[in-house]
């Protein structure tokens, strides 16, 4: 790891200021992606701004029809939250299957969503549930938030303070993990909310995406049979030694059906 200047601001405003002044400053929430990257010397930040000292960024509350999760809330806390379990059990289930227990004790929802790793789990939930991402400067709708591989609508110095998930009538997340890394090789989050049915896929493409044909079919008939024959084109999907694009395309359908079955159980 290259050395850097370390900061642990106590307020969000301080954090933003620290990030602003420097060209190569990085915010760090859980550090579960950043630290491994630094260890491999694949980044050389001048400054690391640790958000761990900022009060009030972590926590889960229910506000009306929404579950609002603070940006610094750890995966383990989402997974074990009684509020999340009762309002959106699929979200608790998803959080409980990220990484491994030690990673879940450190990793945060804000960090995961801001990083937008193509194989991360949370983006599928954010997109499928139509969540709203709140930052220090404003709000983003899920649909316009995930821009591409590791790319989001966040601008420099913009930090996620919370994410608000509307409660779902039915929802489930099914993940086919990469056998080695346990990242999602394909993960499908299916949700039926007041806004309609959404199907979001992570792991398969460069960034999380929705499958409109499945959404339309499920809106008419929320059953796995309804999407059985909806094929996803392999073109443009990820390919590596563990899964070809064709295999991923196939798994999207399988995982989507399983998610629908789980959501209707």
């Amino acid at each position: 790891m290259y050395d850097f200047h370390y900061h642990r601001p106590k307020t969000l405003a301080d954090a933003v200021n620290l990030l602003k002044g420097k060209d190569e400053a990085r915010p760090m929430s859980g550090g579960m992606t950043l630290i491994p990257t630094l260890k491999q010397r694949l980044a050389k930040p001048s400054d690391v701004v640790d958000l761990g000292g900022i009060k009030d960024l972590a926590g889960i509350k229910v506000e009306g029809n929404n579950v609002v999760i603070g940006g610094m809330t750890r995966h383990a806390d989402v997974a074990s939250s009684a509020d999340v379990k009762s309002a959106i059990p699929a979200l608790a289930h998803l959080a409980g299957h990220i990484g491994d227990p030690a990673v879940r004790n450190r990793g945060t929802i804000g960090g995961s969503v801001a990083n937008n790793d193509p194989a991360a789990d949370y983006p599928a939930a954010v997109l499928a549930l139509g969540a709203t991402i709140t930052t220090n400067t404003g709000k983003h709708a899920a649909d316009s938030f995930f821009k591409g591989l590791f790319e989001t609508a966040l601008s420099d110095g913009e930090l996620i303070t919370s994410i608000s998930f509307p409660k779902a009538e039915k929802a489930a997340y099914m993940k086919f993990p990469n056998p080695a890394s346990r990242y999602a090789m394909v993960g499908v989050f299916v949700a039926k909310t007041a806004a309609g049915v959404r199907v979001a896929v992570t792991g398969a493409g460069p960034s999380v995406f929705r499958v409109k044909a499945m959404e339309d079919a499920l809106a008419k008939n929320f059953s796995s049979a309804a999407i059985k024959d909806i094929k996803i084109p392999a073109d443009g999907l990820n390919s590596d030694i563990h899964a070809s694009a064709e295999y991923r395309a196939h798994l999207v359908n399988v995982m989507a059906r399983r998610a629908v079955d789980a959501a209707t159980k």
Binding site: P179, A180, S181, D240, I241, H242
Partner: peptide
């Protein structure tokens, strides 16, 4: 079922060179 050391046939790079890709 799991383990495979994979070298890229063209470049000779070990692409299963970490626990991210070598399945223990």
């Amino acid at each position: 079922l799991l383990e495979n050391a994979v070298y890229d046939k063209e470049t000779g790079q070990l692409v299963s060179g970490s626990y991210m890709d070598y399945t223990m």
